[in-house]
Amino acid sequence: MNMTNALLLFAACTSLAPTAMAATGHAHEHGVASLNVARSGGSLLIELDGPLDNFVGFEHAPRNAEQKRRLADALAILREPARVVNLPAAAACRLVDAAVAEPFAEKPGAAHDAGDENHADLEANWHFECANAAALDGFEVTLFKHFPRLGKLRVQVAGDGGQSAQTLRPASAQVGF
């Protein structure tokens, strides 16, 4: 019954909870990636961030032709938004901008966590503009089909209708606004 104390207890425990990671960046947890979805009217911004392992199966600079090919394949998929998300056709969305941070690129400062020998992350973001915002009531994330090592997406949604935290899995990959 004492909800206040219960909440305080949980608040004290937050350092154990994944929520604390928001402060320092993100958890590096294999099989899990985070997806930020921000929406204002017809503008839709989607950000993906997760361990590189989820997408290519290794987390170091590619050492052979096979690994190079896998990395190139993964980046190619992410650069094609139709293979990442399935937006409702009625919303008439078009891609305005897409950026996929290439890990292990030679440009200094562009690659995140590339210096870390054991961990590397992959980051990407997409910006859509939708002509019919009213029809944009949610969308399906199709990443799981292309990246079988990805088991879970922690989604943060911020939009005109409110904010929410959602968890997607291959079996239930629908983001709702």
């Binding site: 943060q156 949604v157 904010q163 935290a165």
Partner: peptide, 12 residues
């Protein structure tokens, strides 16, 4: 994001 944090709190 208060709404997101509230959802996360509620998970716990």
């Amino acid at each position: 994001l208060p709404g997101v944090t509230l959802d996360q709190l509620w998970d716990v």
